[in-house]
Write a protein that binds this DNA or RNA. Structure first.
Length: 802
RNA sequence: GCGGGUAUGGCGGAAUUGGCAGACGCGCUGGACUUAGGAUCCAGUGCUGCAAAGCGUGCAGGUUCAAGUCCUGUUACCCGCACCA
């Protein structure tokens, strides 16, 4: 009888729901394991098969671990605030909440069709006021602890979204979401002081099991460097503070450069003789986007400030000061000492402006190019540092600077504080009231959640104000502090807010007293295994580690890190090898595959398609192989005979159990499936399968193809449900056959193969090999120089003429 | 420029970490069954060659009885960061 996947899949999906098989238990004394998958943003387009890859993988892991007796939490939810929903709402004049509701409904039906074993009782939606109440609550705690602050600063402004973006959201000078130009605008923004956690975010990577590439990427993003801050006196009276990682080269500093945004330019306006030129340059660089500024990086530009000079503090030499946009106001102090002999950028600049280049580390040819890699160089032209190594010189000069009170050791980070305001409607309102008298006043916690008002229009404004600013009845309030008239903050939080702590909410999703009870957090945290995309490494993954550390510091959570283990999946590309996207028209809808082949085939193919951690192209032909494989298993159900494990298949079964068990844990799903196929081929060659063997096969296959295996279990094995079974164990001793095929090489070239009893002695193996027909012919008349025997694998006979 | 990664048949990919390269699947070739086949089953399938045999893991060397795997050099592609002082 043909396998009716439509009926069978529906039957079991309903059965599982009815029985509540996948609910994570909050009982004590169980072996808990928390598996987390990045929750999706429910866009109107629905899921494509790329989304299904990590879900399927973690579902396979979860189902296998449940069969092994663990209490698994595999929750799912919706990261639903964000621009696409809002833009769709604007375009179609539908309330974003309604749009979101529809999208979630569609997403959920897609997920259910694939038969994932999520615990839907723990479903969360970041746009639900009962959820974002706690997002706002965390923000208030950050505000109270000085981690949330408002600052006037240049920010990334997306010209199309009409909204501020975090640095992490700007990719190649354009908006990560919509691809439009990003320009700099001066705006007053809420900021989160992630920089306060920079060092701990680096250090605590030692506590977690993340892939090396994830750790390295985070470390590079945080960008720690150590050096010194040094004060240079100027003729304008103000001391110029600079940061350098090369204090050892201080004697080679022949000029200084300050950023065009440096505040001293205004302060020095009266003294600057060529103020017009300086102003013109400032204007020009302000006009450039970040992208243009880096584009032109080869050709250095700048203007010498006439009328003010500085003094090199170690040798007393008077040196000029320039402004140039190769110095960024946002890093270090916005001012540098330039050492052209040992820094490529300074060298380029010095050549262009004909400035002196003084070698202070011997070893390069500084008239040709900057000598930057001077690990083994020796100090010269550097007074007291002469003759020292670079390392020694660094230490000595810092000691000197500290003694003289003109400088000190300093650690710097590239990481910047997190721009946390968005001028959009569809986000969590920031629970702050702005009072002319009292400043920024936090909303009382009892007033949370501060819900979004109903508005007529969600249109953005060109002035850069949030749509919320137009709702007078919502904006105008009385100050909770002084009782005077005040206004609400009208910016909302960025999309990343809700996802920065969602894993905590799953532990206790219906709690209305706290974000999660201590008991639930202690039961489930930290997340045992978190799988997600590499693209979130310096966004969500870093942000959530930061929030978690803050919550740890204020005693809300009990672990310093949120995730014990992180893995990352490779992308599934479209059939044409390009990234799947609606605009490219190369997406594959899992619903289509489920309709054509069934969910089990889809699941199996997604796991079989290739190495889980590497990207791979979809292939609509290859999927047939998985469908055929399942059909074979279905018809095998008619051939089952009574009895236990048969002798001739015992080793194959034990090996397969071992392989599948290990491969699932190591994310080698493709080879786990291949091993199951190999086993089935063996069974089909033999032509018969016993009840015990079939049962074992069904359990091993269950995580991949849960519907068909449940059905076959009920139909053929009977007496309960497959999901109540135990995962099979293997016996190492039974994994091997009692005879093995041994390769025979002569001078390293394969000549023949012979079958010998397992664990045969070396001398027996060698003599068997020598007397094998082809081998004997090959070594006839030769002198045997050496014989190698690799136990149960091969024999290599090394011969030479004569 | 810095950091990370990849390279194996027509295709997706295996290879117990130095031990029989190409598991498993797709595709392809031939055959069977069939009114029919985009179903199923059987056989074959790295390349050259009628064969014997030879060649073969991006390229060039090296170590070794033995190299996809280790070492040196090199090329191409992908990802992340990038005027970060």
């Amino acid at each position: 009888m043909k396998y009716d996947f439509k009926a069978v899949e529906k039957k079991w999906q309903e059965k599982w729901r009815e029985l509540g098989c996948f609910k994570a238990s909050d009982k004590d004394g169980l072996e808990n394991f928390y598996i987390l998958i990045e929750f999706p943003y429910p866009s109107g387009y629905g899921l494509h098969v790329g989304h299904a890859r990590p879900y399927t993988a973690m579902d396979v892991l979860a189902r296998k671990r449940r069969l092994q007796g663990q209490n698994i939490m595999l929750p799912m939810g919706w990261d639903a605030f964000g621009l696409p929903t809002e833009n769709f709402a604007i375009a179609n004049k539908i309330h974003p909440a309604k749009v979101n509701e529809n999208n979630i409904k569609f997403f959920k039906s897609q997920l259910e069709n694939i038969g994932y074993s999520f615990d839907w009782d723990r479903e969360i939606d970041t746009t639900d006021p009962s959820y974002y109440k706690w997002t706002q609550w965390i923000f208030l705690q950050m505000f109270k602890h000085g981690l949330a602050y408002k600052a006037e600063m240049p920010v990334n402004w997306c010209t199309s979204c009409k909204c501020v973006l975090a640095n992490e959201e700007v990719v190649d000078g354009v908006c990560e979401r919509c691809g439009s130009d990003v320009v700099q605008r001066e705006k007053s923004q809420w900021m989160l002081r992630i920089t306060k956690y920079a060092q701990r975010l680096i250090d605590d990577l030692a506590l977690v099991d993340f892939p090396e590439r994830v750790k390295t990427q985070q470390i590079n993003w945080i960008g720690r460097s150590s050096g010194a801050e040094v004060t240079f006196k100027t003729t304008a009276g103000d001391d110029l503070l600079i940061y350098t990682t090369r204090p050892d080269t201080l004697f080679g500093a022949t000029y200084m450069v300050i950023s065009p945004e440096h505040p001293f330019i205004d302060r020095w306006a009266d003294r600057i003789e060529n103020l017009n030129d300086v102003r013109a340059y400032q204007k020009e660089s302000a006009r450039k986007s970040d992208f243009e500024r880096t584009e032109l990086s080869k050709d250095k530009t700048g203007v010498r400030i006439e009328g003010v000079t500085a003094v090199n503090p170690v040798n007393g030499k008077e040196i000029p000061i320039f402004i140039s946009d190769y110095v960024l106001m946002t890093y270090g102090t916005g001012a540098i000492m330039a050492v052209p002999a040992h820094d490529t950028r300074d060298w380029d600049f010095a050549k262009k402006f004909d400035l002196p280049i003084i070698e202070v580390v011997k070893g390069g040819n500084v008239s040709e190019e900057a000598y930057t890699d001077c690990a083994e160089g020796i100090m010269v032209n550097s007074g007291m540092l002469d003759g020292m190594s670079v390392e020694e010189a660094k230490k000595a000069i810092i000691e000197y600077l500290e003694k003289e009170g003109i400088g000190h050791a300093k650690v710097n980070y590239k990481l910047r504080d997190w721009v946390f305001s968005r001028q959009r409607y569809w986000g969590e309102p920031i629970p702050i009231i702005i009072c002319d008298k009292c400043g920024y006043v936090p909303l009382d916690e009892s007033e949370l959640p501060l819900t979004l008002p109903e508005v007529e229009s969600y249109e953005t404004t060109d002035t850069g104000e949030s749509p919320l600013s137009k709702i007078d009845s919502w904006v105008n309030v009385t100050c909770p502090h002084c009782g005077g008239p005040a206004k609400r903050e009208t910016d909302t939080m960025p999309q990343w807010a809700g996802s920065s702590w969602y894993y905590l909410r799953y532990c206790d999703p219906h709690n209305d007293k706290e974000l999660a009870s201590r008991e639930a957090l202690e039961r489930w945290m930290p997340v045992d295994w978190y799988n997600g995309g590499m693209e979130h490494t310096t966004l969500h993954l870093l942000y959530s580690r930061f929030w978690h550390k803050f919550l740890y510091d204020i005693g809300v959570v009990t672990t310093p890190e949120p995730y014990k283990k992180r893995t990352s999946h490779g992308m599934i590309l479209g059939e044409n090898g390009e990234k799947m996207s609606k605009s490219r028209g190369n997406t594959v809808d899992p619903n289509d595959i489920v309709r054509q082949y069934g969910a089990d085939t889809l699941r199996l193919y997604i796991m079989f398609i290739g190495d889980f951690e590497k990207e791979v192209s979809w292939n609509s032909e290859s999927i047939k192989g998985c469908n055929r494989f399942l059909d074979k298993i279905w018809s095998l159900g008619d051939k089952v005979v009574g009895g236990g494990m048969s002798a001739d298949l015992e080793a194959d079964f034990h090996r397969t159990i071992k392989k599948v068990t290990g491969d699932i844990e190591n994310l080698k799903f493709n080879t786990a499936v291949a091993a199951l196929m190999t086993l089935v081929n063996k069974i089909l060659d033999k032509g018969a399968v016993t009840k015990k063997e079939f049962e074992t096969l069904l359990i091993l296959l269950n995580p991949f193809a849960p519907h068909m295996t449940e059905e076959l279990y009920e139909k053929v094995i009977g007496g309960g449900y497959l999901h109540d079974c135990r995962w099979p164990e293997y016996d190492e001793a039974k994994c091997v056959e009692n005879s093995v095929e041994i390769a025979i090489q002569v001078n390293g070239k394969l000549k023949s193969r012979i079958t010998l009893p397992i664990d045969i002695s070396e001398s027996e193996a060698l003599s068997a090999a020598r007397s094998e027909e082809k081998t004997a012919a090959a070594i006839a008349g030769m002198t045997i120089v050496k014989e190698i025997y690799v136990k149960n694998k091969l024999v290599n006979i090394v011969v030479k003429k004569g």
